[in-house]
């Protein structure tokens, strides 16, 4: 098992270097000059411009700039934002809990509904429930996120008035960040109605962000279950006289989980990407919105650092998934 873990870790490093290279190159390929953007409409003198070019190190060869960046990153220094002058690291972790909270809720929503739905669909293959569920999932998967979000806002916030339109909590409540998670902080604050307000603000963004993963997980669970249900060991389980609930829920599901966990892991990447749209629509103060703003400002360190941190998150999740494979199916541990 230890060797398995180490071999997984070994693949981590090249990916990490690759991501720093891509994020570094990506923002520099975009047209636009951060110094001119900083100057704004007033503009600046050529002297001041040249001074800033030297200050930011843009006069040095591109490889030297990358080397500086890479050595900085390896020492834990992601640089400071050109705009706010604050360390990227601090800005990221001030906003990240909001995104994480939303993503976790969306993921719980998607797994809690998608997994049972897929299992039940597979057990009722070809019947009404299966067909309805799978067509619904296809619609959910194909729907543009922004349109779905607006639709929900119109119906539930506009017409019915059940949920708030935007933000993380009503302005009535104010309390300090403890964990950065609104659900937890509102509970700690002990203010009446704060927690309910936080939950009500979370509902629509969670549904919007969780819809695509939900559809993917439901469909993947169904197809994995169908494949597994045709296996010889399922026939053995039935020959042992086990009840159907145990056969489907234990013997089949455990084997079907491998592909399902893979798509769950991949969905995490989609979630963080999808968070950019969802956060923009619901004015959710997370890293998605922050990244979009930084790209418009050509804030190189923020875009580089943000991309890198998101990539590392996705890598960590996928590493966890790899380790989970071994836990679920002992056969994989050996390889």
């Amino acid at each position: 098992m230890l060797r398995y873990v180490l071999s997984r870790f070994a693949t981590f490093l090249p990916t990490f270097i690759g991501v720093t290279l891509i994020s570094f190159a990506f923002i520099r390929v975009l047209p636009g000059d951060p110094i001119i953007v900083m100057a704004g409409e007033r503009g600046m003198t050529q002297e001041r411009y040249d001074e800033l070019v030297v200050q930011f190190g843009f006069d040095r060869p591109i490889l030297a700039q990358y080397w500086d960046y890479l050595t900085g990153v390896l020492q834990g220094d992601l640089g400071n934002s050109y705009v706010t002058k604050r360390p990227v690291w601090d800005e990221f972790f001030a906003l990240f809990p909001a995104t994480l909270e939303l993503s976790i809720c969306a993921m719980i929503f998607a797994v809690a509904l998608g997994l049972p739905a897929g299992v039940i669909a597979a057990m009722n293959r070809g019947k009404f429930f299966d067909r309805t569920l799978m067509s619904t999932a296809l619609v959910g998967y194909s729907m543009p996120i922004f349109w779905w979000a607006l639709l929900l806002i119109i119906v539930f916030s506009g017409n019915l008035g059940w949920t708030p339109v935007s933000g993380r909590i009503d302005l009535l409540y104010y309390f300090d960040d403890v964990t950065g998670f609104m659900l937890i902080d509102s509970l700690i604050s002990g203010q009446d109605g704060a927690f309910t307000s936080a939950v009500r603000h979370l509902i629509l963004p969670t549904i919007v962000l969780g819809t695509i993963p939900l559809a993917v997980i439901a469909r993947q669970t169904r197809s994995a279950m169908l494949e597994v249900l045709g296996e010889d060991y399922i026939r053995t389980a039935r020959a042992k006289g086990l009840p159907p609930g145990r056969i489907n829920g234990l013997h089949a599901l455990r084997n079907a989980l491998i592909p399902v966990i893979t798509v769950i892991g991949l969905s995490v990447g989609t979630l963080l990407a999808g968070a950019i749209l969802t956060e923009t629509i619901f004015s959710w103060p997370g890293i998605g919105k922050w990244m979009v703003d930084s790209i418009f400002r050509r804030d190189y360190p923020v875009v580089q650092g943000g991309l890198l941190l998101i990539a590392v998150m996705v890598m960590v999740v996928n590493l966890t998934v790899d380790l989970l494979y071994g836990l679920i199916n002992p056969k994989i541990r050996k390889r």
């Binding site: 296996e231 010889d232 060991y233 026939r235 053995t236 389980a237 013997h251 455990r254 084997n255 679920i328 199916n329 002992p330 056969k331």
Partner: peptide, 10 residues
């Protein structure tokens, strides 16, 4: 097929 008749996960 004894190899495929036993559940690989248990």
């Amino acid at each position: 097929e004894p190899m495929s008749s036993l559940n690989p996960c248990f």
